[in-house]
Structures are given as structure tokens and as C-alpha cells.
Design a protein around this nucleic acid. Structure first.
Lengths: 342, 342
DNA sequence: CTGAAAGCGCTAACAG
DNA sequence: CTGTTAGCGCTTTCAG
């Protein structure tokens, strides 16, 4: 046994055991304890010493202090997920995917709804941002830590996991066109008019324009309320009042689509017999609608998992750059679409 | 200007500025910088010095390191939310409430689905547990940090924000009984039979028994699949095959209730004309059903907010004990209930 | 194979 | 009013 200057730090009785305590208990130095307790693979340690240390740790119910470790290594093993949509079923699809991926990689998950919170240094190793990478919100773009966005985009973007809403809208319209529909309503709820046209709207317009014999875009939108479902009902009612020269509806999201379904049913119009509907995001809402709705499946869960994975890789490579990936959108066909009546 | 032994620590060029850097830049000691930058209220500081420090901090884009601060103060200003139900709409109702309450109190939110992760010391100041406080899962009960449970219970429990599912079930049954129903089906999906009877089941039985002229409990349940909605459909179909001597359904949750609604509709049975339905949790599912469903409102959002609040108080009082609170359950009446037909 | 010691960046006595 | 200094608990060279 050697000099061993290790001394307990604070004397509190029920104070959780520290490395110093374990070192003293095992009769070795803190350095050795640290090495033993962290060794991923086999490091040069006398088996007997190792056992003494493990026993001591066990006996003292030693738990490493994550904060102290983080201060020393500059790594927290925590990743934060930023979003404004904590309640959205679409977000609910990605949350477990992210959490799961992080956990299996040994990382913890934090959630925040305000970019400000990310600016304090050191709290997290990286960030997943459910936000438009094109918009410089509060200087997110120059976070001091690796970050990966998850958002829709027409083209692959660096540091962003994307899918293409233009393609998604085209998929929906194309499906309806193939069934024979020529007059397809676009139901978009409200969106900021100042900004550029949302991808789904652009995709809808382009796809509708490409359908031979198309009646052209028939768009319904407007700022009615924050309630998407209710907006779907109201907009569809209005559309109905104006005329019935259309045979299908493409909605910007499943809530809107369900609202449309409801308004249609209450007007005595049958889905899919009289009117077909395609929703967006393929959330639980589409699955439990009556009839179950065909919906564009945006790969948000995969995107979340991939973002987590990519981010962790970047963190461990100590690199801030991650390649962009574009995931395919698909169509989940259910029972809300059929050929037009006549 | 005095001695000021402050020296920069590491020399990296783009290394984020530290207190030492700011102190040097401002020509004061780190202690003074720390005091100035943390002063909640007015502390004795020469205004001119204070300004010099703030300017220096600004110039260097100084951001306090949360980890170092946490190590020194033993406080992380982070609270973790534990749950197994990341996808449930019921959980989605509480998440924003918790996040919001924590943020306004200056705390951060972490989320975890595995108790193990909580055992590492120091990472968080407290925990909100969406779990049954009666069950000792993995020794949660003796976490080294203040914790508050959020769960249903018949009686107030220490360290737990509760509501009473027995009362909730009674509320539903009572409502149906008042409308005149005497044969009320209980739709419970699957639940572990080994454990004690769930509160909703017990509440249902008791309430049904208390209805004068009641036909007694008519329970349908069974392990069919993990899909609650589908279970609701299947169980209701089975119930329908067996007979139709009942006039109302009380379901354990809104998904089950919606499944029942669907099965009924497809069997040509009208809600609420022929059969009444009451759901549970008052989630978005109840609101967007057709007809919108009456549902028992469990105060999970308030419970979450209150848990956050209570927990933060406990943390700041440095106390592990928090008083239990029981929140009332209510009934949100919509369109799925009416007097029985005859 | 193992120990000593120097930090990680910040806070909080304790002096002065 | 402001500086010095001793930690917080752990990791990590650098010796030996």
C-alpha cells in the first residue's frame, strides 16, 4: 500500500459516495478507480486490484457524478430536441424514435421549445431542431454545438434530414389523378402569406397542372381558428356552398382532412363514393377515421431516428458537419379514395 | 488596478470565453464577475465596475457554462419527466404543461423512459414520474432526488399528484344512469389480471351496483392486440353478437370508445340514439369523433403543471417531501349520450 | 500497472 | 466594494 493522499471531501453522513471514497475504501488512488470503472475494453489492471475496487464501489453504492464527469470531459451525453409542436400527433410519432435511438446509444434526451435555452454553454452535446433551416431563428444557425435539422425541403440540405413535401403533394394528387379525378380541391388551412409558398401548396399546384384535362387548382384556405379540425369542417362547408364541380380533396394535414370528411358526411356526401380524400402525415387520425383515410406518409419517425444517429456520430467525431439526407415520402392507401362517380 | 492573478486556462483560439477571460478583459477578479453576472437583486457593486464587466462579457460573447455552475452549486436546474407512454395523446396533453411550467421557473426538461437513467447522480434536480407510486419499480421510491408522481389514486398520496379514477368511472356511470340507462357495458380492453383491479374497473362496478334497477356489471375485456382502437371495435362486435340487452357503453379510454363507436355504426346502431357512449381522458380523439364523445376529463395537464411547480418548490426548499394533491375529475359532455331508446 | 497532480469553469466563504 | 482561494467530483497526462 502506498502514500495515497486521498481524503474525503465533505463530511456529510449520507453524502453520496465519490471516487475519493471508493479509492480510500479500496486502498488505491482515484486515478485507478476511474480507470477501472470506465474501462470499455481491457486495460492494464491487476485483476485482484480491479476486484477490490469493484467491491468497494458496490459496498458504497457508488454512482458516478455525471456533472463532474461532464465538466472534465466536456461531454454531457445529452442531446436536446427543439420543437414548437409538443402536442402535435406528428411530433408524437418522432419523439419515441428519437428517445429510443438516443438511449441505445447511451445518450439522454432533453426537450425545449425556446432556442434561448440552447445558448447556455455545456448543457448538451448536440441539438435536433424541428425547424426550417432556411429561417435564421434567433441565430440557431450558429449554435456552438453540432445540430441537425428535421424539416421538409425540395432538395437535400446540409445538416438536415429532409423529405420532400412537393413530392408528397404530387404523390397525393397523382394518386387521385390516376383514379380519374380531374378537379381536385387543395385544402390548406391557414398559412403565412408573407413567406414563400409552402411546399405542399407548390407541389399541389404543379401536380394539378400536370394532370391532362385538369380543372386547375381549386384552393381553399384562410385564417379561421387555431383548430385545424374545425378549419377543415368550415372550409369544406364553404367549398360546398360555392359549388360541387370537384370530386376530390387533398388536405395539408390529417386534421384538416378529417374535418373535410366530417363536413362531407354531414352534407350527405359519401366518402369515397362521391368524393375522395387524401390526408397528410399519416398520423393516428388518418388510421381511425371512418372510413380510414389515405394519407401521405412523411417519414418523421425515421427522420428523428436518423437525426439522432447522425447527430451522435457528429458529436463523437467532434465534427459540426453532418451530411443531409432526404427520405422518401410514401402514400398509405386506405379507404377514402375511389374513382369519381360518373 | 490590482494584482489579479487571473490567467486564461486553455489557449484554443475559438474556445468559448470563460469567466477568467471576462475578468481579465474587464480588469477585475473572477469573483466580481461572477457576482455581477449572477446578481438577482442589487448587490454592492460600483456601477462603473459593473458596466465594465457587462461590456467585457458582451464583447467576448460570454456564456456561462452550465455544467461548471452545476458542479459548484450542485444544482442543474433540470427536471426529468419519466414515462413509458411517449406516444399517448393523454401524455401529449401533459407534456406542454410541464414544459411550460418548468420554463417559466427557469428549469429545463429532460425526458426518459427508463428508470435506470435516473440513478446516475447529479444530472437532474428532481423527477416527475408518470408511474404508479404503489409499485416499487426498480427502486424508484428511493431516488436520491426529490420526485413527484403523477398517477391515479383513490386517496391522497404523499409525493403524488392524483386524481380519482374510481370517481371518474362513477361520474361516467352516474351520468348514464341519470339519463335512464340501467344496463351499462364496461369496455376495459386488456389489463394485467395479476395486479389488483384497476380503479376504473372498480369504480365502474361500484357505481353500476349503486344504480337502482341496475342490470349489474357487463364487462368486456381481453388481450386482443396492442391497438386500443382495434380492441374497441373487436370487443364491441363480440358484445353485439352476444346480445343487445344493454343501452350504453363506458370505455376505459377514448380509443376504446372510438372503436366502440365505429363498431356500432357499422352494425347500423346509432349513437347516441340507440346506444350511448362515454369515453375516458377527454383527449383529442373524443373531440373529433362523430358524434363528438362525452368523456371523463382527467386533469393530466393540470397535474403535470402542478407536479412541476411542486417539484421545483421542493428542490428549492431542499426538501424531498411534497404534499400530495388530489385534483377533481370532471365530465366533458358532448353528443354521444342520450336517454335510452324505449 | 498505479499514483500524484493539474485542471474542467464556476461559486462561495473569507479576508481586506 | 473587491480579491484570493479552496473546492465541486472526475478525467487525464506524466512519472515512476
Amino acid at each position: 500500500m502506498q502514500t495515497l493522499t486521498a481524503k474525503p471531501s465533505t463530511e456529510g453522513p449520507d453524502r453520496p459516495a465519490t471516487l475519493v471514497d471508493v479509492a480510500r475504501e479500496a486502498g488505491v488512488s482515484v486515478a485507478t478507480v476511474s480507470r477501472v470503472l470506465n474501462s470499455k475494453l481491457s486495460i492494464p489492471i491487476t485483476p485482484e486490484t480491479e476486484q477490490r475496487i469493484r467491491d468497494a464501489a458496490e459496498r458504497l453504492a457508488y454512482r458516478p457524478n455525471a456533472i463532474a464527469r461532464a465538466l472534465a470531459t466536456r461531454r454531457t451525453f445529452t442531446v436536446v430536441l427543439f420543437t414548437q409542436e409538443l402536442t402535435d400527433p406528428h411530433f408524437a410519432q418522432m419523439l419515441p424514435a428519437v428517445e429510443d435511438e438516443l438511449r441505445r446509444r447511451g445518450y439522454h434526451l432533453a426537450v425545449c421549445t425556446e432556442i434561448e435555452g440552447l445558448l447556455t454553454e455545456g448543457r448538451v452535446d448536440g441539438a435536433i431542431l424541428l425547424a426550417n433551416p432556411g429561417v435564421e431563428q434567433h441565430g440557431v444557425h450558429r449554435l456552438p454545438i453540432p445540430a441537425v435539422y428535421v424539416w421538409s425541403a425540395r432538395v437535400p440540405l446540409p445538416n438536415c434530414i429532409t423529405w420532400d413535401d412537393v413530392a408528397g403533394a404530387a404523390l397525393a394528387v397523382g394518386h387521385l389523378a390516376e383514379l380519374g379525378h380531374r378537379a381536385i380541391v387543395g385544402l390548406f388551412g391557414d398559412y403565412a402569406d408573407g413567406a414563400e409558398t409552402p411546399d405542399k401548396v407548390a407541389g399541389y399546384r404543379a401536380a394539378v397542372g400536370a394532370v391532362p384535362g385538369s380543372a386547375g387548382p381549386i384552393e381553399w384556405r384562410g385564417r379561421l381558428s387555431g383548430d385545424q379540425f374545425e378549419n377543415g369542417v368550415l372550409l369544406t362547408k364553404k367549398a360546398l356552398e360555392t359549388g360541387r364541380d370537384w370530386t376530390a380533396i387533398f388536405a395539408r394535414n390529417d386534421f384538416l382532412a378529417l374535418g373535410a370528411l366530417r363536413a362531407l358526411r354531414h352534407a350527405g356526401i359519401r366518402v369515397p363514393d362521391d368524393v375522395s380524400i387524401v390526408g397528410y402525415n399519416d398520423t393516428v387520425i388518418a388510421r381511425i377515421a371512418d372510413p380510414p383515410m389515405t394519407s401521405v406518409l412523411t417519414p418523421i419517425a425515421e427522420a428523428g431516428a436518423l437525426a439522432a444517429q447522425t447527430l451522435v456520430n457528429a458529436v463523437e467525431r467532434r465534427s459540426n458537419a453532418v451530411a443531409g439526407v432526404t427520405l422518401p415520402v410514401r402514400l398509405t392507401e386506405r379507404k377514402s379514395c375511389a374513382p369519381p362517380r360518373s
